[in-house]
C-alpha cells in the first residue's frame, strides 16, 4: 500500500483543526482592527456573509439575526390612522383571504349596516386560529386591499393555547406605520402603485368632466 494507513484520518483532523484555529484567528483579526465581533450588528452581518469563518453562532436572545423583509410568520391586519387619531381598518371583509387560505383557518364576520342591512366594508370580527395556520402567506399575497400582511414577530410562545391561540381582530390589528417599518420596500412599492392608480383615476375623471363640459 503506497499510502500510509491513517493518513486519511490525519487529513480529516487537519480540517477540524483548521476550523478550530479559524475561530481564534478571526477573533484576533477583529481585535486588531479595533472592532467588536460579538453583540454588534456588524459582527452578526459578518457571520451571515459568504466569507464567514470562525464562530458561526448567533447568540440569541442577546444577538438577534435580522429577518429579511419577506420573512413571514403569523398574519396581521393593517389599520390606518388619520390625523384625528381615528382608526380605519383597511380590510373590507371581501373574504378572499378566507377563500384562499389552505387549511381554512380564517373566519371573518362581515358587518352589516344596522339600518339598511347592507354589508359595510369593515369586518365585525376576524379570527385566525394560529394552531392551524401554516404561515404560507397566501392570504397576504392575494388580498386585493393590502390589508393583511405577514408579521415578523416570532416571539409568541404561550403557556395556554386554548385562551391565547385564536387571534381575534384586536390581537391581529397593527397600524400601518408598523407595516411600513417591517417591510419598507413593499410598503413603498404598494404606496406608489396606489398613488399611481389614484392619479389615473383623477385624470380620467378630469377628462370626463372636460368632455362633458365641452359637450355642453
Amino acid at each position: 500500500m503506497a499510502d500510509m494507513y491513517g493518513k486519511g484520518l490525519l487529513k480529516g483532523l487537519g480540517v477540524t483543526i483548521k476550523h478550530f484555529m479559524d475561530t481564534y484567528l478571526e477573533d484576533i483579526r477583529w481585535l486588531s482592527r479595533g472592532k467588536h465581533r460579538y453583540y454588534t450588528a456588524e459582527g452578526i452581518d459578518s457571520r451571515k456573509s459568504f466569507d464567514t469563518s470562525g464562530i458561526f453562532t448567533v447568540q440569541y436572545p442577546e444577538e438577534r439575526l435580522p429577518v429579511p423583509e419577506e420573512f413571514r410568520f403569523i398574519p396581521f391586519l393593517i389599520y390606518e390612522v388619520n390625523e384625528d387619531g381615528e382608526t380605519q381598518d383597511r380590510c373590507t371583509s371581501c373574504g378572499i383571504c378566507a377563500k384562499v387560505c389552505p387549511p381554512q383557518c380564517i373566519w371573518i364576520e362581515r358587518t352589516s349596516d344596522p339600518d339598511t342591512g347592507r354589508p359595510v366594508p369593515e369586518p365585525e370580527e376576524f379570527y385566525i386560529d394560529i394552531d392551524i395556520c401554516m404561515n404560507c402567506g397566501l392570504c397576504a399575497e392575494f388580498c386585493p386591499f393590502d390589508a393583511i400582511k405577514m408579521d415578523h414577530d416570532y416571539e409568541i410562545s404561550v403557556y395556554n393555547r386554548l385562551e391565547k391561540n385564536i387571534f381575534n381582530k384586536e390581537r391581529l390589528s397593527r397600524p400601518v406605520s408598523y407595516y411600513a417599518s417591517i417591510r419598507p420596500t413593499n410598503y413603498a412599492r404598494e404606496e406608489a402603485a396606489r398613488a399611481e392608480a389614484e392619479a389615473a383615476k383623477a385624470a380620467k375623471k378630469a377628462a370626463r368632466e372636460k368632455r362633458s363640459k365641452s359637450g355642453k
Binding site: 436572545p61 438577534r64 410568520f73 394552531d131 416570532y154 416571539e155 409568541i156 410562545s157
Partner: peptide, 22 residues
C-alpha cells in the same frame, strides 16, 4: 400535559429558543 406552546409552522430556531426561555 404541555407546559409551553410555541406557535409557528415551523417556528424558526430563534422562536424555539424563545419557547425554551419561556
Amino acid at each position: 400535559p404541555v407546559d409551553v406552546y410555541v406557535p409557528g409552522c415551523p417556528p424558526t430556531p430563534q422562536a424555539l429558543i424563545h419557547g425554551l426561555i419561556t
